[in-house]
Design a protein around this nucleic acid. Structure first.
Length: 308
DNA sequence: GACCAGGACCATT
DNA sequence: AATGGTCATGGT
């Protein structure tokens, strides 16, 4: 740290990194694209701007910093994406199509508590609503940060003890609905040390899953989101409605599949980086769902008529 | 206005 | 063990 001088910007040289797709693929909920082309967000209690360059990513802070390792870790810029893609089954047309269509999509490495809290709020909500809840909770309980634009106030996400102290009603006022009691209960357990989030990093996937699912409002899906997006367990495989849909369509001939059977299949099929494969399938399928499939009016209403 | 959204939980079978 | 209903809230 001696020779490095503090700078307000830092460039991260990295290939195969699509910043826009990564920040908008439903894994993190505090990023927004500004009209000037910068992405603005909050990471580890700091306001941050990011933008794509020809050779990597450019980051800018409000104040100069010497240490940028925290951001390198968050962005996972040291990861060689090609080695990840090389683990995918090569003859899987559905997956390869998703990879080709979402080139440069990456997995971030987020703060465990913020990630957990965000996904406790995620159940049967759309991504834009999750973003709204996270923002409201940050404004209500979080610390005010130094921001780029004095007009645009930014707040850090409150820690578990602060959320617990804030109470369930405050969370409900943040439009969290029936999830308020879950987030409150989980915050209390974590603040009381009944579940130690830091200790999960050195556990096996199954052990860490068992710990997270002790928390109220945390089932297998949300647990795997946290294990994948915050801890980087490479085989964590969250199954939401979109993933269930794409796996059923592409690997089970469109027929309904029970969750246990689906999980057994993907663990065998996608290999050591199943979680990465999941993110490509999820984002690609979700993008298809948005677009009404280019003049798909009446005939051929079903792109795959396998239901019967 | 119906239907759906990065689910989990609890009460019935 | 395996379904079915329920829980808020906003977008399409």
């Amino acid at each position: 740290m001696a020779s490095e001088s503090a700078t307000i910007e830092k460039h991260f040289p990295v290939a195969d990194y699509n910043l826009a797709v990564t920040l908008a693929s439903g894994q993190a909920f505090r990023w927004s694209l500004k009209p000037d082309g910068w992405w603005e967000g909050v990471v580890h209690g700091r306001c941050l701007r990011l933008r794509q360059t020809e050779t990597g990513l450019l980051a800018r802070l409000v104040r100069p910093a010497q240490d940028w390792l925290w951001l390198e870790h968050y962005l996972q810029t040291e990861l060689d994406l090609q080695t990840v893609l090389a683990t995918f089954p090569r003859n899987d047309i559905a997956l390869q199509t998703a990879v080709a269509s979402c080139r440069g999509l990456r997995l971030l490495r987020q703060n465990p508590w913020e990630c957990l809290a965000s996904f406790i709020l995620s159940s049967t909500k759309q991504i834009c609503q999750i973003e709204q809840c996270v923002e409201l909770i940050s404004r209500s309980l979080g610390q005010k940060l130094e921001s780029f634009d004095p007009a645009g106030e930014k707040f850090g996400f409150p820690d578990a003890a602060t959320v617990a102290a804030g109470g369930e009603e405050l969370l409900r006022a943040c439009k969290t609905g029936f999830r308020a009691k879950y987030l409150f209960g989980s915050a209390r357990m974590i603040a009381a040390g009944e579940v130690d989030l830091a200790s999960l990093a050195s556990m096996t996937l199954e052990e860490a899953r068992d710990q997270l699912t002790r928390l109220p409002g945390v089932g297998p899906k949300i647990a795997d989101c946290v294990l994948l997006f915050a801890y980087g367990f490479p085989r964590a495989f969250p199954v939401d409605v979109w993933v269930e849909r794409v796996v059923r369509e592409c690997y089970f001939n469109g027929r309904p599949v029970k969750r246990d059977r689906l999980v057994a299949f993907v663990e065998n099929h996608f290999g050591q980086r199943a979680g990465y494969a999941q993110q490509y399938l999820f984002h690609h399928r979700r993008m298809l769902g948005k677009i009404p499939a280019a003049a798909d009016t009446k005939p051929a209403a079903k792109r795959r008529g396998i239901a019967s």
